[in-house]
């Protein structure tokens, strides 16, 4: 806690399913080092019990509290108030983009979770696969008799889909998290199945290289790098196929 409290105006998006959105302002005295989620919870607890929002772990592991803070996608449990405003300032809080709004700050992520599931996403992966090639992989401290594993970085918060300008233009685009998941699965098990799921006009080729997903990702997944790495693989396969005719077997995989 810092000694001086700040007075901050929180402009919060309010909307019931199918209803017209509006903005309601709440003025709070806050510790500048508190998190945005703390302020949202205080608004709910002390000012308006009808406000709806999602939260769970409060330490950037569950991915539930993704919102837009002053227009930018943030995981609100790790975004300090001082990082987005100043004493006497205003903070605008909106739900994620490119998802249907269920109520206030809650969006329906059901389709996104289904697509992640279809991609084969597993939250535990071998250490070598879970780390990006340019990262320094951690070494297991104790000797173990099997390949070390770790939790993968993606927490399925959906910030990457919300910020993606391509997802804004095509509602069928599977989005960066799903493509990153397919890449992760392909690294672990390099079979054509994952390539076929990604190599689709609503998959790899819908990405317009804006790199916003990597910019907002709160856990360093680097979806853009993974998408480009998979594109490289597809392009290289296509070039090779010019010189080595492929079998007549037709691709029939569906996008994730």
């Amino acid at each position: 806690m810092t000694e001086q409290l700040w007075q901050v105006h929180f402009k919060v998006h309010r909307q019931r399913t199918g209803g017209k959105p509006y903005v309601r302002t709440f003025t709070l005295d806050v510790d500048p080092e508190e998190y945005i989620l703390d302020a949202v919870e205080r608004i709910w607890a002390l000012h308006d019990r009808t406000l709806t929002y999602r939260h769970a772990c409060h330490h950037s592991t569950c991915g539930a509290c993704g919102m837009r803070v002053n227009g930018r996608e943030k995981l609100t449990c790790i975004t300090t108030i001082s990082s987005v405003t100043q004493n006497g300032g205003t903070v605008r809080i909106d739900p994620l983009r490119n998802f249907p709004v269920v109520s206030d700050l809650v969006v329906d992520m059901g389709n996104f979770f289904l697509r992640m599931d279809r991609s084969g996403f597993n939250s535990v992966a071998p250490l070598a696969a879970a780390c990006l090639p340019y990262e320094q992989p951690l070494t297991a401290e104790n000797s173990i008799d099997h390949e070390p594993e770790r939790l993968v970085d993606c927490i399925e918060c959906g910030l990457c889909i919300s910020v993606c300008p391509a997802a804004n233009t095509d509602k069928e685009y599977v989005g960066p998290a799903v493509l990153a998941s397919l890449h992760l699965m392909y690294v672990q098990n390099p079979t054509q199945e994952f390539i076929d799921q990604a190599d689709h006009h609503t998959g790899l080729w819908r990405c317009h290289s804006a790199y916003e997903c990597t910019e907002v990702c709160p856990s360093g997944v680097d979806p853009a790098w993974r998408i480009m790495d998979m594109r490289k693989k597809v392009m290289s396969d296509r070039i090779k196929s010019i010189f080595r005719p492929r079998s007549s077997e037709k691709k029939n995989a569906q996008p994730a």
């Binding site: 249907p100 389709n111 996104f112 989005g175």
Partner: peptide, 8 residues
């Protein structure tokens, strides 16, 4: 349900 960007 798709990602559903807002209409228009």
């Amino acid at each position: 349900m798709p990602n559903q960007p807002e209409a228009n």
